[in-house]
Simulated assay, not measured.
Amino acid sequence: MSKGWSKEEVESVVADYFKMLLSELEGKSFNKTEHRKILSPQLADRSMGSIEFKHQNISAVMIDLGLPYITGYKPRGNYQGLLKKTTETLLESSPELIHAIKMDVEKGAELQHIDNILDAFVLPPAPQNNSTSVCENLSGYGETDSKFSKVNYLEREARNTSLGAAGEKFVLEYEKTRLMSIEKFNFADRIEQVSETRGDWAGYDIRSFNDNGSDRFIEVKTTRYGIETPFFVTKNELGFSTKNSLGYNLYRVFSFRKAPKLFMLQGRLDKVCTLDPVQFRAHV
Rank of each mutant, 00 (worst) to 15 (best):
I191F: 09
V122K: 05
H113N: 14
A166H: 03
L39E: 02
L246Y: 12
Q80N: 08
F121D: 13
G77L: 03
P260G: 03
T234Q: 04
V171A: 08
L262R: 13
S93R: 14
V13L: 10
Q279K: 15
N236K: 04
S241N: 06
M264H: 10
S241I: 03
N236W: 08
S40M: 04
D115W: 05
G108C: 08
L250R: 07
F254V: 01
I38T: 13
E92D: 09
M1T: 10
S149I: 12
Q279R: 14
E34P: 02
E196L: 15
G142H: 10
R281E: 13
S93A: 13
R46V: 02
L83A: 05
G4I: 02
V233T: 11
V134P: 05
S139N: 15
F148A: 06
F254T: 01
G199E: 02
H35D: 02
Y73W: 05
K32D: 00
E175N: 07
E26A: 03
E106P: 06
L83M: 07
D205G: 09
I70R: 00
V151D: 12
L90N: 09
N78F: 09
P125M: 06
S12I: 00
S29C: 11
L22P: 15
N78R: 12
E175W: 08
I206S: 06
G167D: 10
V14D: 00
N31M: 00
S208Y: 03
E9R: 02
N31V: 00
I182H: 04
I63D: 04
I58L: 00
E26S: 06
S181C: 03
D119Q: 15
T222K: 09
W201D: 13
E192S: 13
G108S: 08
K235Y: 15
D64I: 01
Q193I: 06
G27R: 03
V253T: 03
E173M: 15
K261R: 14
R224C: 05
L97R: 07
Q56M: 07
E237Y: 07
N152C: 05
K169G: 07
A282Y: 15
D16F: 07
A165G: 15
S149A: 10
E168C: 11
H55Y: 03
K221A: 09
A126N: 14
S2Q: 13
N152M: 04
F187N: 06
Y248D: 06
V194D: 02
E183T: 15
E196W: 11
D211Y: 12
K74C: 05
I98A: 08
S50Q: 08
P68V: 00
L118Y: 02
F217L: 15
E106T: 12
S93N: 13
K150D: 12
V151K: 12
R268E: 14
G72N: 00
S241K: 03
P260A: 06
D189S: 11
T33K: 11
S12C: 06
G213A: 05
I206H: 08
N186G: 14
E219N: 09
Y153H: 11
F256N: 02
V220S: 09
M180E: 14
D16L: 02
S47K: 10
N129W: 08
Y17D: 01
G108Y: 01
D119V: 06
P124H: 04
V13W: 02
A126R: 13
E96K: 15
K102H: 07
E173R: 15
Y251K: 11
K261G: 00
D215F: 14
P41Y: 04
L269P: 11
L118R: 06
N78W: 01
M180P: 00
N160H: 13
L43P: 01
